[in-house]
Design a protein around this nucleic acid. Structure first.
Lengths: 129, 129
DNA sequence: CTCGGAATTGGAATTGTTCTAATTTCCGCC
DNA sequence: GGCGGAAATTAGAACAATTCCAATTCCGAG
């Protein structure tokens, strides 16, 4: 276990939370993380899961993704990207921008606007593959 | 009062809710709508406000806007646009796409994807004007 | 006018998240 | 190796936005 990531001191719980997100990148909710984490750390509490996720989000190590008012989901993909919720399967999939596209370039923002955070979510149906 | 809008039968409460959103387009929360609506309809209940907003959203007459896990806000601007939350003033402002830009064109989506809904939110600082 | 379905209402219930206070762990220093 | 203070973790209570529920009111067709 590294002693820190991105300036955040790693503890057992933070590290396992992070590893879990990196390992299956299926955008789990806090509660899903909690359930999975208990296999590794049987005494972990839900409060700790929230604490760890918040710490990771604050340090820019993972991103928090919100679909409407559903429970927040967590994503370790740090590249600028959106999220597509497939209404057929219920799954959530990362959506990249086309090469060379910068979101700020396609928006009609006043000169000098500072963007600190962007969230792009889509809902629809992916083609039956 | 029209008898219906977009297929939704208008009632006194739905109509006043809609008018209120159209009149000051400052992205109020359900609770803010409730407080304002009481001036016109003193006996209105918060449950009704939620019902009316839901009916309007379902019929595509207004849009529901979510910033993280904050209370939902409501917006009668139906054009495809994003929302910018100015961290300095706390205000929310509609952001149009640059002319000719279609969001689906800049995203790397599989051929045949159907998009039913898009939500784009930004957070940052608008220039001091 | 009257009946039936839809809308509205107030309050209770639900749910994801945050807070609190108590305990445990971590880490530099003796 | 033990000690002390700070930070992290824990369990459970609290909270806030929203939804549900049962009772009442409204509205339009006949």
């Amino acid at each position: 276990m590294p002693s820190e990531i991105g300036g955040l001191k790693m503890t057992r719980q933070r590290w396992e939370t992070y590893r879990l997100l990196m390992n299956h990148r299926d955008h789990p909710t806090a509660n899903e993380v909690f359930i999975r984490l208990k296999e590794k750390l049987p005494n972990v509490s839900l409060a700790t899961v929230y604490n760890c996720l918040e710490a990771l989000v604050q340090h820019g190590i993972v991103r928090q993704v919100n679909f409407d008012r559903e429970p927040s989901r967590f994503c370790p993909n740090l590249a600028e990207h959106g999220h597509f919720h497939d209404q057929r399967s219920g799954s959530i999939r990362d959506i990249a921008f086309k090469p060379g596209i910068n979101l700020a370039d396609v928006l009609d923002l006043p000169e000098g606007t500072v963007i600190n955070d962007v969230e792009l979510t889509l809902r629809g149906e992916l083609p039956q593959s």
